[in-house]
Every structure is written in C-alpha cells, then in structure tokens.
Simulated assay, not measured.
Amino acid sequence: MKNLIDTHFHLDHYRNYFEIAKTITELEQYTICVTNSPGIFLSCKNLIPETKYLKFAIGFHPQETTLGGREINDFIRLISSTNYVGEIGLDYSQKSYMSKPLQLKYFEQIVEICASKNKFMTIHVRKAEKDAIRILEKYHPTKAIIHWYTGGCDDMLRLVDLGCYFSINTNMVKGSKKENYHLLPLERILIESDGPYTKVNNKKYTPALLKDAYEEISRFYNNPDLPRNIYYNFEKILLS
C-alpha cells in the first residue's frame, strides 16, 4: 500500500516521539499530528521538523481545564502558521472537563476562524452532537472532520448533510457503534489511528501498523480499494 494517510495521531503522547516522527517520514505516510493546546503545538513545531509527510495541527481540547483566555489568544495568533487545526471540539461526558459555557464559547470562536480561513479541522464531539451541529451549521466550514464519532445515526447523518467527513479507526469498527459506520457515504470516509489510543493486531498503535489498520478497516467495509478511496477523499478535502 502506498500513499497511506492518518488524519489524527498524537505524536507528543509517545515517549520516543523523535523515533516515531522519523518512522512516519521514512514510511512516507501522510500524518496529521494533533495537539491539545497552542503551547504543545508550538513546542512540537520547535522540537520536530515538519516534512512532506508529517504536519502538526494546533489544538484546543475541551478536556483541558487549564486552557483559557490567554490560550485562545495564542491560538488565534498561531493559527496562521499552519493549515491544520485539532484536536478541538465539545465534550459533555464528564463534569471534570472544561465547563460547558467555555467549551461552547471557544469552539464557536475556532470554527468561525477556521471557516473564514478555510482551515482543515479534526473535531472531537462527545455527548454534544446537537451543539456541534448548530455551530457547524452556522459557519459551514468545508474541511471539517469528525474524529471517532460515538453519537447516534440521526446526528451522524445530519453532519454528513453539513459536508463533514468522518475519520475511522480500528477500535471503531470493533465497537458497539460499528454498524452505524456502514451508513456513511464512501466519499466522506477518512482513516485515523488516534495513536496511541487504539490497537491493531492486539498491539498498541505505532505508525508501522498503519498498513495493518487500513487492511482491517478495508475488511470491515468489504472494500479492497479503500486505500485509494481514502487518498482521493483526502486530496479532495485539501483542495476544497
């Protein structure tokens, strides 16, 4: 398999991140390395050179309770230095996360900016589908990817109607919601690893396993041409 793409990967969550970064480029696997905050994004950019295959996304994760006004200002200042945004989103699954009003405030600010600047977004949504739909419907971004979707079918199809893409990983196609993902149009599917938070062949994900992840997801969709389809979808979203 050639031209494999991983749209959501946490490079900074590996201890041997220098080695992992080198492997990504050697394997020629296009990888979006998401971050959880502007500070982490900046640190990653300063530590690890980007390549044709490895790009960093600036994040503002709703589970990060330390993020506030200064960080959103940093986000706005730094967004011009990258075409990629993530991980961002809304998460109402636990009270210990950033408060709901702050999540809504920051997410709407970020979506508005990304829509106006046509930025690629990888979005985390958990138990907050209706609010995410409302905000995305307001600004109509053209490069929105819903990462590891766990909501219901109706909301999923509404997001499809809004033009969203969905990134699928190996845990998703084995989980309780797996049948929902068969309802997604082929032209809206991308592949993510969400490494290191997934497993492939019962092993914690590393980039050396991306080929195996593609094979597993291709079997789930009964589509041996899925890698080619994913590459086309990714190319389309970048050019939109």
Score class of each variant (00 low, 15 high):
1 M>I: 12
5 I>C: 05
8 H>W: 06
8 H>V: 09
9 F>C: 10
10 H>E: 03
11 L>K: 01
12 D>I: 01
12 D>N: 13
14 Y>P: 05
19 E>R: 11
20 I>V: 15
22 K>Y: 09
24 I>V: 13
28 E>L: 11
32 I>E: 06
32 I>Q: 06
34 V>I: 15
38 P>D: 03
39 G>L: 07
41 F>T: 00
43 S>H: 10
45 K>Q: 04
49 P>E: 15
50 E>C: 02
51 T>I: 04
52 K>F: 07
65 T>I: 14
66 T>M: 00
68 G>Y: 03
70 R>K: 09
71 E>V: 06
71 E>F: 01
73 N>I: 11
79 I>T: 08
80 S>G: 03
82 T>G: 00
83 N>C: 01
86 G>R: 03
96 S>F: 13
97 Y>S: 08
97 Y>G: 01
99 S>T: 13
102 L>D: 06
108 E>C: 06
110 I>S: 01
112 E>V: 04
114 C>V: 10
117 K>A: 09
118 N>D: 15
119 K>F: 05
120 F>P: 04
120 F>W: 07
122 T>N: 14
125 V>Q: 10
130 K>R: 15
130 K>Q: 13
131 D>W: 04
132 A>F: 10
138 K>C: 08
141 P>V: 09
142 T>A: 14
142 T>Y: 09
143 K>F: 08
145 I>D: 03
146 I>R: 05
147 H>E: 13
148 W>A: 12
148 W>D: 01
151 G>R: 12
152 G>D: 15
153 C>H: 12
153 C>N: 13
158 R>T: 13
168 I>P: 03
173 V>G: 03
178 K>N: 09
178 K>V: 03
182 H>E: 01
187 E>M: 09
189 I>A: 12
192 E>H: 09
193 S>D: 07
193 S>P: 02
194 D>P: 05
196 P>K: 12
197 Y>K: 05
199 K>R: 14
200 V>M: 01
200 V>H: 00
204 K>T: 10
206 T>W: 11
206 T>Y: 12
209 L>C: 08
212 D>R: 04
214 Y>A: 00
214 Y>M: 07
229 N>F: 04
229 N>D: 13
233 N>P: 05
234 F>R: 08
235 E>Y: 03
235 E>F: 05
236 K>C: 06
236 K>D: 10
238 L>Q: 13
238 L>A: 07
